[in-house]
């Protein structure tokens, strides 16, 4: 359409859009390029092929971080969705004080991961948190010391993550539950379906597109998790709760190995793409199918 030829319009539209999109393209290319250079403290030219990648992948740090990501990612996503679903179904039962409850389950989302991590580090600290309280109440044998247990520490991050994100899953699931056609429910009730069958056979199956969306969003949250670990465990005990995003930061700004840091960042991006690309393709197929139908 004619009309975009005038200068002020041009400036207002294109300058921000070009900066925003250019930043994304240029920065991605830039970091990718750095990952092939021998850069250490400062970016330097030169080409070292995949050497940064092989050395990052060979470090114990990265291996632990990636294993942790698998544990954390699956634990966090599955349990958050499950919690969110339970909350949504319970709230869907015409509960007294529904609005208050919704607000309660959602408030953690307004809080920063730094705050969440800090508060949970206190609650889970065996010396002063839940364990101490239960011990002081008389059950002296009670132990809840995941925070200082190398094998269990990663689950503290899962717990805090669930607390923070399950409200999000709940909100989306609840919106989905509420948008199920009333006639569908009436039909099922006339067919004689009880509450359990009504949910498992009629209502929940309509939720699966939302479930996939929630799954993808939670997965990408998991892959990008940084602040929460910094505040909750600092990556410890030792390096027991390292995650790839922390490893990137560590290489770049603690050890001064920009090339390797960039390589780790690219690996992080590839992990993310492994989740997002199939989703994007699936969405495309869905859209096309809807358009053809």
């Amino acid at each position: 359409m004619a009309g975009l030829r005038r200068v002020p319009e041009f400036l207002v539209i294109w300058v921000p859009l070009l900066i925003a999109s250019g930043q994304i393209v240029v920065f991605t290319a830039w970091t990718t390029w750095l990952s092939f250079t021998p850069s250490t403290l400062m970016p330097t030219d030169g080409f070292v092929g995949l050497r940064n990648y092989t050395s990052v992948l060979a470090t114990r740090n990265w291996k632990i971080a990636f294993d942790n990501l698998l544990i954390f990612g699956s634990g966090f996503v599955v349990l958050t969705m499950l919690t969110g679903l339970v909350l949504a179904v319970l709230i869907d039962q015409r509960i007294r004080g529904e609005n208050v409850l919704r607000s309660i389950f959602l408030y953690p989302l307004a809080v920063s991961f730094v705050v969440t991590g800090t508060v949970w580090s206190w609650l889970l600290n065996p010396g002063m948190g839940i364990q101490k309280l239960v011990n002081d109440l008389g059950w002296s044998g009670f132990r809840f010391d995941w925070l200082v247990d190398r094998d269990m520490a990663i689950w503290t991050i899962v717990v805090a993550g669930i607390w923070q994100s399950s409200g999000f899953a709940m909100a989306l699931f609840l919106a989905g539950l509420r948008s199920v056609e009333a006639d569908l429910i009436k039909a099922a009730q006339i067919d004689g379906a009880g509450p359990w069958r009504l949910y498992t056979r009629v209502i929940l199956p309509t939720l699966w597109p939302i479930m996939i969306a929630v799954l993808v969003i939670l997965l990408q949250t998991a892959i990008r998790t940084f602040d929460l670990v910094r505040a909750l465990t600092g990556g410890g005990p030792g390096i027991a709760t390292q995650l790839p995003s922390l490893v990137v930061y560590d290489f770049m700004f603690q050890r001064g190995q920009l090339g390797r840091g960039a390589a780790a960042a690219v690996l992080l991006l590839l992990t993310l793409l492994a989740v997002l690309l199939p989703y994007a393709i699936w969405k495309r197929v869905q859209a096309r199918r809807a358009a053809n139908a």
Binding site: L18, Q23, T31, R224, L268
Partner: peptide, 27 residues
């Protein structure tokens, strides 16, 4: 307002929603 390349630029801008911060730290 449809204009040339609007879908491209929109796709790129929204890619920023997903691009991890770590990719942008050094730049």
């Amino acid at each position: 307002w449809r204009f040339k390349g609007d879908r491209w630029i929109f796709g790129l801008v929204t890619a920023g929603v997903f691009l991890p911060e770590q990719m942008r730290l050094i730049p």
